[in-house]
Design a protein around this nucleic acid. Sequence first.
DNA 1: TTGTACGCGTTATCAC
DNA 2: GTGATAACGCGTACAA
Lengths: 338, 338
Amino acid sequence: MKITLKDIARELEVSISTVSKALKNSEEISRDTKEKVQAFAKLYNYKPNNIAISLKNKRTKNIGVVIPDIVHHFFTTVIRGIEKYANARGYNVIVCLSEESFDKEVINMEMLANGSIDGFIMSLSSETQQKADYNHLKEVTEQGIPVVLFDRITNEIDCDKVIIDDELGAYMATKRLIDEGRKKIALITTDDYLSVSKARTMGYRKALIESGLGVDESRILKLSSMEMDEERIKDFFETQKVDAVLCVNEIFAVYSMRLAQEKGLKIPEDISFIGFTDGFLSKYAYPSLTVVAQHGEKMGEISAQMLIDKVEGEKEEEETFQTKTLEPTLVIRDSIFH
Amino acid sequence: MKITLKDIARELEVSISTVSKALKNSEEISRDTKEKVQAFAKLYNYKPNNIAISLKNKRTKNIGVVIPDIVHHFFTTVIRGIEKYANARGYNVIVCLSEESFDKEVINMEMLANGSIDGFIMSLSSETQQKADYNHLKEVTEQGIPVVLFDRITNEIDCDKVIIDDELGAYMATKRLIDEGRKKIALITTDDYLSVSKARTMGYRKALIESGLGVDESRILKLSSMEMDEERIKDFFETQKVDAVLCVNEIFAVYSMRLAQEKGLKIPEDISFIGFTDGFLSKYAYPSLTVVAQHGEKMGEISAQMLIDKVEGEKEEEETFQTKTLEPTLVIRDSIFH
DNA sequence: TTGTACGCGTTATCAC
DNA sequence: GTGATAACGCGTACAA
């Protein structure tokens, strides 16, 4: 089964420490013994036990990723970015899903905080942002466990952060729609307690105000969560006459496009659409959807890099936290004129 | 920072084992000491160190999930199923991506096999299935680490397996298209070395042969990987006149629908489509796509259950492996008549 | 009722 | 050149 130093030592009738050194090719050990030990180890496929090493080094080489959700394309790409980068530096990724629940987020973090991981990368659940209760994060950081927050962040916690400039993204998108000649631009978003939705709404407002169009509050639809509420979107389009729609994710956008098409509207002739998140849905929708790309994979990489740098960095140095803001990009497709 | 039994013992001037017992409410310890210790532990938020416990118990309570890819909806739902079930039983999930590469799969497994996890849940990379080299799996099982394979499996390895009946799924879908009156049914798939593609192709053939339509090989498009090859699909539709298409995933299907629509074809009047995987893409495509649902979340749950049962089971009992086959379901949407 | 000793697997220090 | 010992944090059988 699994062979240990002790086994090798017993078998070769040398001490455990000799074996340990021999396997590390230590100068102290005679060539003879080294060869013998190494051959034996290879034969029986000896590999040091990670757990024992973790205990000794107080380093697990695991990083905990706590996210609200995994089926949405954005989080999926972030994980991929984290995993790639972390793996390259010899770290494994433990994924925990809060499923937008505060309690699950807390439980998951407690579970991992007891030595299972060297640091956290996380995006807050909507319930957490709604309650604005961040004690579980405080506890963890006070224990000295490094944390990197991405996308759904809070200013209440001192730690590294990675976001995209959501306000700018929404601003760019709205501006583009205005430049195209759209006058009645709707926004489909979620409640403002979600940091990203709030920022995006601000960007939308800013663009409208700057252009002199002004904000018509009745054109803003606030859904209560990131999940689809088909009925409310349907109702919205029944009562509102708009010529462009900005949505805070791609699902809202693609579903809205469908409703428009079912009403006989032509996209983009009669109405145009822009969403957030550059996923399969946007790419393969018909017509394909113009989106604000969030660069999830890049965010994941950067988060992982910041975390690991902190984990491996000297604790001595002054604790200094930074927030990295990525530039969003507009990916132009057929749901608008171009 | 992090407090240990030793710290408490020193502070309270008792022995470590007394503290340990007191925290477990052992009968051996006086009420007095117990209260003192428990109060102190609570105050300083003592939590046992998972790593130390893992080393002692030779159980990590981690399970390793090695999959080819995470951005595709199917794998995403499987992870969710695994995570939910595993978490409920106190296990954490370490996710590793092979990215369809044999080497990465091997490296990932070796990384985890040295004590980091209690067992594996995995789906083979396409390269692994192509090379048909399963030595890394053999090594792991021979070490006594339980493995559950799902979806992309191999018969070369003795272990538990979870699949859906891919052949039946394709058969059902093809049958449905035939019953609808379709005569020229195309199949867009990938090379046969992928176990699932092979099975689906068989189901497709079976349905055609049974119905007396026969198989026209020129109507089968085999792409070299699960990744989109837009050019080849385009070429295929340039040269083939078909009235229905079965695709082994939803991306191929949705992209094909787009091509058809761009050529002015009406769906499902002129041509109908069925894909595999019941994801957002199928649901929100226009028209919405009929699919063979793979029940990924269920697969994940079952895989996790089988694995954990094996991990926690008595080693004594005769090693007995089972293969669970889930029934696929046809989710009827607007890309076919109904 | 409390404490000692040992073991999990490894590495590092120090003695021989 | 080799080996004994301690330590990482915990639990437990056994001794006091």
